[in-house]
Design a binder for these strands. Structure first.
Lengths: 132, 132, 132, 132
DNA sequence: GTGGTCTAGACCACC
DNA sequence: GTGGTCTAGACCACT
């Protein structure tokens, strides 16, 4: 899978990394049970610090997206993804509301906004299953 | 308008403030041309430093949501809100994609996601015009 | 003469006022010996505070552009404009250098910059001598 | 590069700093991709508060002259300088007109003014590439 | 009284 | 060690 990082963004690298991996799973480029690169190799591949990759992996593990086995490596959680918990719903609301509010301010009507969300949804789910 | 801040959140206070004000405008609790509290009074009202409020106001001004008139105070931009610029679209995509990707991972189908977005849209636009 | 003020600009009103009057003199819309409106009437005409107009007039007087006669009013200096003093040259350099440096940074070549300066020069000196 | 600040000037320190850095770029004393001192070291070097330097850097970043990489430092924008946008042209006019108008008032003819502008242009572009 | 600027000093996130 | 954020408190320019 191709990882794209924007070193100039104000979004922390480890967050971008998490997002990319989550999008990889969502698009089925990464399947449950599939191995991810080791912390070391990924870090050297994308040219970031070990700690940064480690932090991303640790947080993904905490949220249940991946499992980290000492010595054996990192796999996409073979037991399936975490579900829609109340905690997640709150987090999602906190992320979504400001985006929606700004869209309203800027004069985007509901149909247009839904069209955009739908198109991203389709774009992600229809991404080609290429392996990197 | 009632401002709610979460001092424990990792979202900077000035960002929370910006979001609240933008949602206030989106919900028409704040109308174009309406005055916002002065930096100092708002700061003391919500119990933060005046520089924090100042930063939120300055950023909102840069994005075109409000105007800051020297020595007269701060008003919601009476010339209307900023439009849907390419810059904004990129920012919106960067905000939206990770949220959508995580929703997909967690097994939320498209209809459910659109339902949620729509319900927030309605919730914001239909908030009662109460003054605080 | 028509005075245009931008209340949203970060340039102080009194400075804008000074600039407008200086441009009025430069364009010969205001001739040496000609009377300017009183502080009171100008202030009410353009909708600003008395003190603001007063400050602009006082500074213009200090620089030698106008004379203020108690009771009789304010006139464009009939003895002619101030000349090109060393002080003025320093001020001009301080104003000009940053503008030129930024133009260079943005890739504006010398001919283009000179063309722009020349066009403003012409625009000001050729403004119609209308009276307001 | 040598930074000169006038603490007595009514021009804010952060603005003077911005101007100096822009002139440094214009004169090629600072090349795209080159690192600038850290906020803290520059602040202590020139004897101002780190917030003042931070403000200058942040504004320069917003205008596209520099990039701020989290935890890595500040570099002159390696992707090149911002171009000549309509916004910039308006700003430039607002800066230039008053200077030109005053020059006209004081009896400076067009040739003389153009000569001065040209000489500053040459002075900036021909500054020796000395490192400090 | 308003926002703008500056200082001083602290803690945190990131790498 | 880097920038980012927040606090506290001061002075100033402007209206």
């Amino acid at each position: 899978m191709i990882i794209r990082l924007d070193m100039q963004s104000d979004v922390p690298i480890y967050t971008q990394l998490m997002n990319q991996i989550i999008e990889g799973i969502a698009s089925k480029q990464l399947a449950p049970g599939e191995y991810l690169p080791s912390v070391r190799s990924l870090a050297s591949d994308i040219g970031v610090n070990l700690h940064t990759v480690n932090k991303a992996y640790t947080l993904l593990k905490q949220e249940g997206f991946i499992q980290i086995h000492r010595q054996k490596g990192v796999v996409v959680n073979p037991d399936g993804m975490p579900g829609i918990t109340p905690d997640y719903q709150h987090k999602q609301e906190a992320q979504l509301r400001p985006v929606i509010a700004e869209a309203i301010c800027r004069g985007m009507d509901k149909a247009e906004l839904l069209r955009i969300v739908e198109s991203f949804y389709d774009e992600i789910t229809q991404e080609p299953k290429e392996n990197a």
